[in-house]
């Protein structure tokens, strides 16, 4: 019986070892999932286009699933960003939602067994993308250029209506938020969630094997406990499914809300 350790997330590279392109198990899983997503969406899109050209507008089942997914993302994006800005950032939010969801899902796909997002790489990459996006949105919606940058910073750090002695503290905290805490918390949240899920599943499986089949140091009287851990592993697989969807939702929803806070607000809306 072997319990999972931190080494699970730093597997040995099996291709191009020692170069910057070192290729390990988690990266292979990422490639498989991304290939699946790309092929799936492309086939669904081309098929539905072909059907639409032939005059058949009744959607097929896979098309319905994809449309529901896109509609869900579009709804919460438009709800907080509005139609115009929402349309501008919809590709970003949809891409993040779909890729994070499918990469999370690979944690419970038999044979892959590790979430593509349980390394720091992918969450970090998306966090950098979100970071640049809300800075761009903030600067361009406040007028653009250097002037836009200063107005954006003034709006973020020194909003009107606060007591004067709060400003020094507020500005520092808010500056840290904009520059570090927002993207870092996005990345750490996703990464550690998927890591915790993988560890939980690993511990359930290892304990089941130890209790039911036997391992040195474990008495045969412990067999009933194995039944509980076996049931636990089924339950936690379902739980991981929930977490995969929830984390994808939270990641993209927070992206939207960061974009929304850096947007220039009309005076009459406040």
């Amino acid at each position: 019986m072997q319990f999972p350790t931190i080494a699970e997330f730093l597997p040995k590279a099996f291709l191009f070892d020692g170069t910057p392109f070192a290729f390990n198990r988690i990266q292979l899983v990422r490639f498989v999932m991304i290939a699946f997503v790309t092929v799936f969406f492309c086939t669904v899109a081309s098929k539905s286009l072909k059907r639409a050209k032939a005059g058949n507008v009744v959607p097929t089942k896979p098309q319905l699933v994809v449309e529901m997914l896109f509609d869900f993302v579009r709804n919460f994006t438009f709800d907080s960003l509005g139609e115009k800005t929402g349309k501008k950032w919809l590709p970003l939010v949809t891409t993040i939602f779909c890729s994070v969801f499918f990469l999370n899902l690979s944690g419970i796909v038999p044979g892959l067994n590790i979430a593509g997002t349980s390394g720091m790489g992918i969450p970090f990459l998306f966090a950098v993308w979100v970071f640049t996006s809300y800075w761009r949105e903030g600067i361009s919606s406040h007028g653009g250029g250097i002037k836009g940058f200063f107005i954006f910073m003034k709006d973020e750090l020194f909003p009107s209506g606060l007591p004067i002695f709060v400003y020094p503290v507020y500005a520092v905290v808010e500056f840290l938020q904009v520059i570090l805490i927002r993207p870092a918390s996005l990345a750490i949240r996703l990464f550690s969630n998927m890591m915790a899920g993988h560890m939980l599943l690993g511990i359930c499986f290892a304990a089941t094997q130890g209790f039911l089949i036997g391992a040195p140091g474990i008495s045969r009287l412990m067999m009933p406990a194995g039944v509980i851990t076996l049931a636990g592993s089924f339950i936690f697989i379902l739980f991981e499914l929930l977490v995969a969807a929830l984390q994808a939702y939270i990641y993209s929803f927070l992206t939207v809300s960061y974009l929304e806070t850096s947007m220039a607000h009309e005076p009459e809306n406040d």
Binding site: S185, R189, F191, S192, N193, A196, S257
Partner: peptide
């Protein structure tokens, strides 16, 4: 519900930070 998930995400982070620090 949407607001709750937003709050859950912020609170959950503190627990997860502890989880990362363990390693």
């Amino acid at each position: 519900q949407a607001l709750m998930f937003l709050g859950v995400a912020f609170i959950e982070l503190f627990g997860l930070l502890g989880f990362v620090l363990v390693f």
